[in-house]
Computed example of a mutant assay.
Amino acid sequence: MLLLMILLFCSLRVVTAQTNSTGSARALDALLQDYAYRALVRPRTRTGRVYDGVVPSNLTGIMVSAMRLRSGSLRRHGFGMYKEFEIPMGIVEKPYVKRLVLVYQNLGNWSIVYHPPPGYVYLAPVLGLLAYNASDLMAKNLQALRINASGQPISIKFSDIKSLPEGPVPKCVSFDLNGTFDFSDVLPDKTCTTFQQGHFSIVVESTALSPVPSRHGKKNNSKVWIIVGSVLGGLALLVILGLLVLLAYKYKKAKKMQHMERAAEVGESLEMTRVGSTMAPAATVTRTQPTLETEYVP
């Protein structure tokens, strides 16, 4: 019963953490949509042109861009390369809108904060592609459209990927707007594919990242042991010298005490004088001279 309660508590904590992360990610999407739309507010906004937005200082490291397109043109022709995203023809949005805005996100060092992959480590920043209605470029907190690739998938070509030692197999990870994630294989040219909007990156299992042994490991270890041995030997020598000094001090103090005790026992020496046929000690000086009572004068 106790084990069941512990398992239930742990599962509730995991669900709560995932829910909080999803809520934070959706709040970030709404905020970045606002800053991306601000880049489009200008006297003349051209269709099919990429405009880079500016995020506040507390989100330094995140990049956001916006591009307005006609939905019919996007469906018939696609759009070559939009940052790292290659958008093919056949893109359909739901609900239908006449014009839409594709918002690009690069979360940079904030990737792990808003999209934490349990048990995995990011090899590339999280990239996002979301679609919104373009009828009002001053709008905020817009609901993201559902876009789907009806033909070829959307390709994400990652360029900023961390180096990885041989062994672990990297995986593509995609996060949908509900917070669920899915894994797929990475293509040979560091490319991931998707049929819908969301957030994407490349990850590797954290348990697979074991330390790589150094070629000079033994040599470095021997140097370390030499240094450690020298330090320990020096400390031992200092301890021995300290003990010798302490013993010498105690010995000198003991000898001095013995000398003082002997001097106290011997006291002042008395001269010997002969009394009859016997030698007896006699004081050389008397402190008080004897006086007869008849000689006492007050």
Rank of each mutant, 00 (worst) to 15 (best):
P170G: 04
Q105L: 11
S222T: 11
V97T: 02
Y82D: 09
R76D: 15
S163R: 01
I202W: 01
R75A: 04
A248Q: 14
Q18G: 11
P43V: 07
S210C: 12
L28A: 12
S135N: 11
G242H: 13
A131V: 09
P298T: 09
L3K: 13
Y249T: 02
K157E: 06
I202K: 01
S210E: 07
F158M: 04
V169W: 02
P188A: 05
E205N: 05
T47F: 10
K157F: 09
G61W: 06
K218M: 11
A144E: 12
E93W: 08
V231Y: 15
S174T: 08
G276R: 14
T288P: 00
D34P: 05
Y120I: 03
L243C: 14
L2W: 07
R146N: 14
G53A: 05
L107F: 11
S174A: 11
V169E: 07
H199I: 01
E86P: 00
L123H: 02
R76A: 12
L3H: 13
V186T: 05
N106C: 07
F183E: 01
V204I: 04
F175D: 03
E261S: 10
P290T: 08
S135R: 04
W110K: 07
L246P: 06
A208W: 08
V126A: 03
F158D: 02
K218I: 11
A131R: 02
G23D: 15
